[in-house]
C-alpha cells in the first residue's frame, strides 16, 4: 500500500465501500459498470533473468504502456516468455530461478523485499499457452476461482453472479455458455476453454494482463476470436502478449518488442522495441528485419 493509505477499491468488496461513496449510483453500477481496471504501466530497468547459474535473459530495459497491447516476438528460446513471466513473478515458481534489476509497476518495484508475490499476481494476471481450466470445477466456479480462494472471503451468490456474467461477457464467452454454467470447464472446446481462462483472469480485476502465446494451441477461427478479444480488452487493461505469429503481432499490438539470442548458450536480449508499425516497416536493427521478413526463426 502506498503511504496515501487510501484503500484501493475492488469490485467484490466495492458494494460496501463504493455504496458509501457513490450512494444511489451503486445499484446501477453493479450491473453495468464492471472491471475496475486502472491499467497500470510497467517498466523494466536492467533486468537480468536467471535459471540457477544460467543467465537466460540479459539487460532488458523496456517501458510497457498502459491501455495498449505490447507484443513480444522473437525466435524460439530467445527468452520472450521468460521476460513475460518475470512481470508477475511467475518466473520464480521454477526452483532456482531468480531475477535481478527492477520491474516497476506504476513506479513500485515488484521485486522489492516488502512485496507479496501473491498480490503482484492478483494485479498482473496471466493467460497461458495451453488452456488450463481447473478440471474439478464447473465453468462458473472456474471464473470465480480467483475471487473465492483469495483470503477465504465469503462472497454472496448475487455478487459472484455479477462477476461471472461480466467476466464471461468480457471474454466473449457468455452467449455460448450461459445455459450451462454448471457444466465442467474441461468439457468446452479448446478455443472456449482459452476464453474461459481469460474470463477467469479478468474476474480478479487485474490491471495488467499477460498472455503467453494464447492462441498457439487453437484453430484459426478460435484464434481470430481471441485476437478480437485482445482488441477489446486493451481499453481496460495493459496487455502484454507473447506470440510466434508475426501477423498476429502486427494485427493486435500497438508496440512490439523483438528479442533474440546472441548464439547457442548465450542469454537472450531485447534487440529493439517501438511502435508496431515502425518495427514492421522500418526496423532499426538488421536482425529484426531478417526475422520479420522470415529469413530466420
Amino acid at each position: 500500500m502506498g503511504s496515501e493509505g487510501q484503500a484501493p477499491v475492488k469490485l467484490s468488496v466495492q458494494s460496501a465501500v463504493g455504496a458509501a461513496a457513490e450512494g444511489k449510483v451503486e445499484a446501477q453500477r453493479v450491473h453495468e459498470v464492471s472491471a475496475p481496471s486502472r491499467a497500470k504501466r510497467m517498466d523494466l530497468n536492467g533486468v537480468n533473468i536467471y535459471y540457477g547459474k544460467f543467465l537466460a535473459v540479459e539487460g532488458v530495459n523496456l517501458p510497457i504502456e498502459p491501455r495498449a497491447v505490447t507484443a513480444f516476438i522473437g525466435p524460439s528460446g530467445c527468452g520472450k516468455s521468460t521476460v513475460l513471466r518475470t512481470l508477475n513473478r511467475m518466473h520464480e515458481v521454477i526452483p532456482g530461478a531468480y531475477v535481478t534489476g527492477e520491474v516497476l509497476l506504476d513506479g513500485q518495484d515488484i521485486y522489492a523485499s516488502n512485496v507479496d508475490p501473491v498480490n503482484v499476481r492478483r494485479t498482473v494476471g496471466m493467460v497461458f499457452q495451453r488452456p488450463n481450466p481447473f478440471p474439478t470445477m464447473s465453468i462458473y466456479d472456474n471464473v470465480i476461482a480467483g475471487l473465492k480462494l483469495e483470503k477465504g472471503r465469503r462472497i454472496r451468490k448475487s455478487e459472484t453472479d455479477v462477476v461471472v456474467e461480466r467476466s464471461l461477457r468480457g471474454a466473449n464467452l457468455w452467449n455460448e455458455v450461459k445455459d450451462r454454467l454448471k457444466a465442467p470447464g474441461a468439457g468446452l472446446s479448446g478455443g472456449q476453454q482459452q476464453r474461459l481462462c481469460i474470463a477467469r483472469a479478468i474476474a480478479v480485476e487485474p490491471e495488467v494482463l499477460l498472455m503467453d502465446e494464447p492462441a498457439s494451441a487453437l484453430d484459426p477461427i478460435s484464434t481470430l476470436a481471441i485476437e478480437d478479444l485482445v482488441h477489446e480488452l486493451k481499453t481496460e487493461f495493459t496487455i502484454v502478449i507473447v506470440t510466434h505469429n508475426m501477423q498476429q503481432a502486427a494485427r493486435v499490438s500497438d508496440t512490439t518488442a523483438f528479442y533474440n539470442l546472441a548464439g547457442i548458450g548465450q542469454p537472450g536480449k531485447l534487440i529493439e522495441y517501438g511502435p508496431t508499425q515502425e518495427i514492421f516497416s522500418s526496423p532499426r536493427e538488421k536482425q529484426t528485419e531478417d526475422y520479420i521478413s522470415g529469413r530466420f526463426g
Binding site: 511467475m90 499476481r121 497461458f128 488450463n132 478440471p135 477467469r200 483472469a201
Partner: peptide, 12 residues
C-alpha cells in the same frame, strides 16, 4: 499448468 494458472490468479 493448473498450479501455474492458480498462482497467476494471485492464489497463495
Amino acid at each position: 499448468d493448473l498450479r501455474e494458472a492458480s498462482l497467476a490468479l494471485g492464489i497463495p
